[in-house]
Computed example of a mutant assay.
Amino acid sequence: MKEIYADLHIHIGRTEKGRAVKITGSKNLTLANILETATSRKGLDLIGIIDCHSPEVIEEIEQLIHEQKAEELIDGGVRFKKTTLILGSEIEIYDEHCHGPIHVLCYIPTIEKMKEFSNWMRAHQKNIHLSSQRTYCDGRTLQQKVRELNGLFIPAHVFTPFKSLFGKGVKKSLSEVFDPDLIDGIELGLSSDTTMVKGMSELGPYSFVTNSDAHSLGKLAREYQKIKVADANFEELRKALHQKEGRAIVANYGLNPLLGKYYETVCTSCGEQILEDGHTRCPYCGKEQLIKGVSKRIRELTDAPFQKVKRPPYIHQIPLDFIPGIGSKTIEKMLDAFGTEMNILHEASLEELKEAIPEKLAITIDLARKGQLAITGGGGGIYGKIDKV
């Protein structure tokens, strides 16, 4: 057994031919750039690219294998250097049972099965080439198709106010839309963590994942997890999600929820945060233009004072490029010294950091990776802020 680092929610901005996949994604967020960044800069052992249903992306994966730059693994996934790619697809569901659109992550074990999945989705989507497209079938039908292909099904960023399971998709329970037995994990998303949801009994059976939802190369591993597996492949990921045969997610690494864009309730008209519960109208300007914060929504869904579910630690950790005073030149110096960002965050001691960069910056990074920097909460689509050190 070994412990690996995984980020399972990464978008593709463009194909090598220039076709848009994730419209809001960076143009240099290509398959080749993601793989190279993940393995040589970030130090990720397992990544999920969730736009692999796009036909041109499938072609690029097959071309890498044809050129012997990558290999498909017997137990699922595609190995590129030190990093394994898990083929995934982010899909939007908005059927008659939903109160708002819901994004879900579907992971498929092999290229051939992903081709089958892509062809199946052509009949249910308007544009198979784009990311996060609305699928014109109900949630349970999609779940059944993923299970038929021996895949994995995980609701995405489940508490964000827009396009998520609990944000608007359901009133109270995931069973309003999905078959609970066909869910393989829950992606918490920004603005939430394990402690916040410990009173939601419905989530007790599921492992939690924390992922970047990266729309640019720099955001890879903004959030991630450490997983105990025998190897980095699809079947080992499945076992870890279901805590089988000693495999498990052993730690989640994510932003302090205060740094998320939707932690607090905010009035979009005047921009003020509304910290007290019970308001349907802004107490400052009187308008009904409130974006409900994740913290408030979770309080609404909490139905038990405490869950006796053993969870791995959720470690509040601030990414290097979020830290005040840490610019690209400083990060490059550390990469030259320590190899990858995972090594900087998990292996380099404070004394070793001081040898590579100025002492004040080294101390700041050490506080950031321990989650000990002061933070002002975010909301209404605006990230929280790290207070000056």
Results as ranks from 00 to 15, higher is better:
4 I>Y: 10
5 Y>S: 03
9 H>V: 03
10 I>Y: 02
15 T>S: 09
17 K>P: 12
18 G>H: 03
20 A>T: 15
23 I>T: 15
26 S>H: 06
27 K>T: 15
31 L>V: 12
32 A>H: 11
33 N>Q: 14
39 T>L: 01
40 S>N: 15
41 R>G: 01
45 D>W: 00
48 G>N: 09
56 E>C: 08
60 E>P: 09
61 I>N: 02
67 E>C: 01
67 E>F: 02
68 Q>S: 13
71 E>K: 10
72 E>W: 00
72 E>G: 00
74 I>M: 09
75 D>W: 01
81 K>F: 00
82 K>W: 00
83 T>S: 00
84 T>E: 02
91 I>Q: 03
91 I>D: 04
92 E>R: 12
101 P>K: 04
102 I>A: 12
103 H>P: 11
107 Y>I: 00
111 I>D: 07
112 E>W: 06
116 E>Y: 05
118 S>A: 07
119 N>Y: 07
123 A>S: 14
127 N>S: 10
127 N>Q: 04
133 Q>W: 03
137 C>G: 01
137 C>V: 12
146 V>E: 14
147 R>N: 06
155 P>L: 09
159 F>T: 01
160 T>K: 14
160 T>S: 08
162 F>A: 13
177 V>R: 05
178 F>W: 03
178 F>Q: 01
181 D>M: 04
181 D>A: 10
185 G>W: 04
186 I>P: 07
188 L>E: 04
188 L>I: 07
190 L>T: 12
190 L>F: 14
193 D>Q: 05
196 M>N: 05
198 K>A: 11
198 K>I: 03
203 L>H: 04
204 G>N: 12
204 G>S: 13
206 Y>A: 02
214 A>D: 10
215 H>I: 07
216 S>C: 13
222 R>D: 08
222 R>L: 01
225 Q>G: 06
226 K>W: 03
229 V>D: 00
230 A>Q: 15
234 F>I: 01
236 E>K: 00
240 A>N: 12
245 E>F: 11
246 G>A: 10
256 N>K: 14
260 G>A: 06
262 Y>E: 13
270 C>L: 06
274 I>L: 14
279 H>V: 04
281 R>Q: 15
291 I>W: 13
293 G>W: 06
296 K>N: 14
309 V>C: 01
311 R>F: 10
311 R>M: 09
312 P>V: 07
313 P>V: 10
313 P>H: 06
315 I>L: 15
323 I>Q: 09
326 I>M: 03
329 K>T: 13
330 T>K: 14
330 T>I: 15
330 T>E: 10
350 L>N: 06
357 I>Y: 03
358 P>Q: 08
359 E>I: 12
364 T>L: 14
367 L>P: 10
370 K>Y: 08
371 G>L: 01
375 I>G: 13
376 T>Y: 07
377 G>N: 05
381 G>Q: 05
382 I>Y: 11
382 I>C: 11
385 K>E: 15
388 K>H: 13
